[in-house]
């Protein structure tokens, strides 16, 4: 299965990776065949961010093999970066009073080009189209530090759309958003997936907003515990492995926010 995917999908084979001196991934293997809309689900500390960083080439695995559309994320970073759009975990960016949404989106596009990188009419058009796609066309001249969390997420997504990516890797995009913003963002991602054929991998703690898109779910807690359709993966037995404090009361399953078990 893994060997057959080649350039049409993602292969992760027996990957081990550490983050902040902790072993965050142990023998992680899975494969996704394009087109896919996939959710990485697991508790805090389960290795979701580590896995995304490995896929995008920001972190070198200790062991194992990773292929994204046939490219090695570490050694073929330049080729892969033209195909991938990455949304960092909320709170890790430094939105400032001197970078406008327009600049961010322009750089999303221009970073696929060689320097010198100047904003031409062509770039302006790409910026306008990308901002329109995420509903931020009226805020193009706003500075990033004046945006709400939802607007900032959409601005970064616009900067990735500008690159016409084949794959969006999103690290906790729904975190720190209010309910409506979560729904809007989930809808936007589905629209990109359906209308533009963008493959999506999104780490999340919650699946409510994406449930009716019937995503592929990768349940992870350092190891991949299960992956497949929601119906196949989200069983009480699987969830019990991922979330140690899961409880059942009078036939109800209560899944509390949890942390990965330290070893």
């Amino acid at each position: 299965m893994v060997e057959q995917l080649g350039r049409s999908g993602i292969e992760v084979v027996d990957v081990y990776a550490s983050y902040d001196n902790h072993l965050a991934l142990e023998s992680v293997s899975f494969s996704l065949n394009s087109p896919f809309y996939s959710l990485l689900l697991g508790p805090n500390g389960a290795g979701k961010t580590t896995l995304i960083k490995v896929l995008v080439g920001l972190l070198k695995p200790l062991k194992g093999r990773v292929s994204v559309y046939g490219f090695n994320p570490l050694t073929e970073k330049n080729s892969l970066s033209k195909l991938v759009g990455y949304l960092p975990q909320p709170g890790t960016s430094r939105p400032s009073s001197f970078i406008k949404i327009r600049d961010l989106v322009a750089m999303g596009y221009l970073s696929t080009k060689r320097p010198p990188r100047f904003v031409s009419d062509e770039v302006e058009k790409v910026v306008s189209d990308s901002l329109r796609a995420v509903g931020l066309e009226d805020l193009a001249d706003r500075y990033l530090n004046s945006l709400s969390s939802g607007e900032l997420h959409r601005a970064i997504i616009a900067s990735t759309i500008a690159r016409s990516p084949r794959l969006l890797l999103l690290d906790e995009p729904l975190a720190s958003l209010d309910f409506n913003s979560k729904c809007e963002l989930a809808e936007l991602l589905l629209k990109l997936h359906r209308d533009r054929g963008v493959d999506i991998i999104m780490s999340t703690h919650e699946i409510t907003h994406c449930a009716y898109f019937n995503p592929v779910v990768i349940l992870i807690n350092r190891k991949v515990l299960a992956y497949g359709s929601m119906r196949e993966v989200l069983t009480v037995d699987n969830l019990r492995k991922a979330y140690p404090s899961i409880t059942e009361v009078s036939g109800l399953t209560i899944l509390a926010e949890d942390h990965a078990v330290k070893r």
Partner: peptide, 22 residues
């Protein structure tokens, strides 16, 4: 003049900039 946008971009998020190919 040549790197104004790049400096702003890397300062916003170095990981994002790296993933974008810079």
């Amino acid at each position: 003049v040549f790197f104004d946008l790049e400096f702003k971009y890397i300062s916003f998020d170095p990981d994002l900039a790296t993933a974008s190919g810079l």
